[in-house]
Simulated scan of single mutants.
Amino acid sequence: MKRPGPLLTLHAGLLLGLFMLTLNATTGTKNASSSYREESPAPTASPPRTTTPPPGPTPSRTPVRDADYAGRTDDDAAAVAVSVRNGRAIAYFCDGRAKESWLKGDVKDDGSMKLTGRHGTELDGKLQEGRRIRGTVDIDGGHFAFTADKAVKPSGLWRATATVRGAKIDGGWIVLRDGRQVGLLDRDGKPSAAPRIDPVTGAVTVDGQQLTARPVTP
């Protein structure tokens, strides 16, 4: 039997080599493509959009109700009356003998107030449930704590100004709920106890002349 010649063997080897080279190239291309797909990161989901809610409506202010208050100091040495209207207040401190002061200022929505008068007089007060004012008055070096309850007509704060027999008259009265009156009459800068007024009409006689005291409001 005749053995294959060297040329045939060489051809067979070349064919086998070409086959293997083609197979490797095909396998490598497939592996590389597969590897690329596996290593590619998954698309990242977009974060959810957040929206800021619009600001709510501004809370409406609740101003302190209009009312009058009258009472006495804790030591019973003087009386205090306060009239509140439209967020403003006017007050009167009077001992009925020689010491008095008119004060005024704003009332905050929480019922607190800081009123000022002449010669450095100050009133610091706070409304309590709309029924009374609890506070202090600093006047002429003295410090007086007071409670003024809500006034019921005819109690409250009264004032009369006029000129009588050439003298300038300025009178202030605090009418308490029990009917007591505390007042001071100033004649050209000279204080004295004030005569009683009619708590219904405000009529009062000063040095023989009839005047009319009127309720005081800011």
Results as ranks from 00 to 15, higher is better:
Arg3Gly: 01
Gly130Cys: 12
Ile174Tyr: 12
Asp178Ser: 08
Ala42Ser: 12
Ala25Ile: 06
Asp178Gly: 10
Lys126Pro: 01
Asp68Ile: 08
Gly166Ala: 05
Arg72Ser: 09
Val216Pro: 00
Arg97Ile: 04
Val204Leu: 12
Leu115Arg: 01
Leu127Phe: 04
Asp106His: 15
Ser35Trp: 03
Thr50Ser: 11
Ala12His: 12
Arg49Trp: 11
Ala167Gln: 14
Asp149Ala: 12
Ile174Thr: 14
Leu115Ile: 06
Asp186Ala: 04
Ala81Trp: 05
Ala98Glu: 11
Asp186Phe: 09
Gly172Lys: 04
Thr212Glu: 02
Asp124His: 10
Gly28Pro: 02
Ile169Pro: 06
Glu100Lys: 01
Arg61Tyr: 05
Phe93Ser: 00
His143Cys: 02
Pro41Phe: 04
Pro47Tyr: 09
Arg180Met: 05
Tyr36Ile: 00
Asp110Glu: 10
Leu157Asn: 06
Thr212Asn: 06
Asp188Glu: 01
Glu122Asn: 13
Gly105Val: 09
Pro199Asp: 02
Thr44Gly: 01
Leu184Ile: 14
Asp95Thr: 01
Asp178Leu: 11
Arg61Val: 15
Val175Gly: 03
Gly71Tyr: 05
Gln210Met: 12
Thr27Arg: 14
Gly87Ile: 07
Ser155Phe: 08
Arg131Phe: 03
Leu8Ser: 06
Ala151Arg: 11
Asp207Pro: 10
Val84Glu: 02
Val107Asp: 05
Cys94Glu: 05
Gly120Glu: 01
Val206Gly: 06
Leu176Glu: 07
Arg118Asn: 04
Arg214Tyr: 00
Phe146Glu: 00
Asp66Lys: 00
Ala25Tyr: 11
Thr22Leu: 12
Arg3Val: 02
Thr26Tyr: 02
Val164Ala: 08
Leu157Asp: 12
Asp198Thr: 04
Val182Ile: 15
Thr44Val: 14
Asn31Gln: 14
Ala160Ile: 08
Arg180Ser: 04
Val64Asp: 02
Leu103Val: 01
Pro53Gln: 12
Ala148Leu: 10
Pro43Met: 10
Val107Thr: 07
Lys108Cys: 06
Lys104Ser: 15
Tyr36Glu: 02
Ser192Met: 13
Ile169Tyr: 05
Lys190Ala: 13
Ala151Cys: 09
Phe144Tyr: 15
Lys114Arg: 15
Pro57Phe: 05
Trp158Leu: 08
Asn31Tyr: 03
Ala89Arg: 06
Leu184Asp: 02
Val200Leu: 15
Arg88Trp: 08
Ala32Val: 09
Gly141Leu: 12
His119Met: 11
Gly183Glu: 02
Thr217Arg: 09
Ala167Tyr: 09
